[in-house]
Amino acid sequence: MNNASTLPNLVDVVLQGGPTRIERFQSVDDHSVSYGKIKIPFGAGYEHFERVSGDDLVFAWTMRTKIAE
């Protein structure tokens, strides 16, 4: 059985803004990139980023949400 079709395709992106300790280069699934919004788990929450206009692989921080308990 070949599971290759179930694995996400990863794309390298650059993050701008957000927490200073978050890695600025991340690999995320290509579906999120095509949607224009990505969510990165960080600490006890998620950091949200949206695509920067004019650059497909650069995302700017927009907000933080907490993980529901």
Results as ranks from 00 to 15, higher is better:
E50T: 11
V14F: 02
S5A: 11
D55Q: 10
S32T: 10
M1S: 11
D55E: 12
L7A: 13
K66G: 09
E47I: 05
Y46R: 09
L10W: 01
Q16A: 06
Y46E: 09
S53C: 06
L7V: 06
T62H: 03
V11P: 02
R51Y: 02
T20Q: 12
F42N: 14
S27W: 02
G43T: 07
K66Q: 13
R64T: 12
S32H: 11
I40Y: 04
G17N: 04
P8W: 01
I22F: 00
G17R: 04
R51K: 15
G45C: 08
E50N: 12
S32A: 13
A4D: 15
E69R: 11
S5W: 06
D29Q: 03
A44Y: 11
K37G: 09
N9Y: 01
A44H: 13
P19C: 04
A68F: 05
G36P: 07
H31D: 14
V11I: 10
M63Y: 09
T6M: 09
E47W: 05
E50K: 14
L15E: 02
N3D: 11
H31Q: 15
F25C: 04
T62A: 07
A44L: 14
Y35R: 15
S34I: 03
E47K: 09
Q16Y: 01
L57Q: 09
D12Y: 04
A68R: 12
I22M: 09
G36F: 04
V13P: 00
V13G: 00
V14D: 04
V28P: 01
P8E: 07
S34D: 13
R64K: 12
T6I: 08
T62C: 05
W61Y: 15
A60M: 03
F49W: 04
I67Y: 00
G17C: 02
L57A: 07
Y46D: 08
D29F: 00
D56S: 12
F25H: 14
V14S: 07
L7Y: 06
K39R: 15
L15H: 03
E23P: 04
A4C: 08
S34C: 07
E23L: 08
V11W: 00
Y35D: 15
T65W: 00
E69F: 02
W61Q: 08
D30M: 06
S32G: 13
S34Y: 01
A60V: 05
K37Y: 06
L10V: 01
G17W: 01
S53A: 14
F25V: 14
M1D: 10
I40V: 13
S5M: 09
D29A: 02
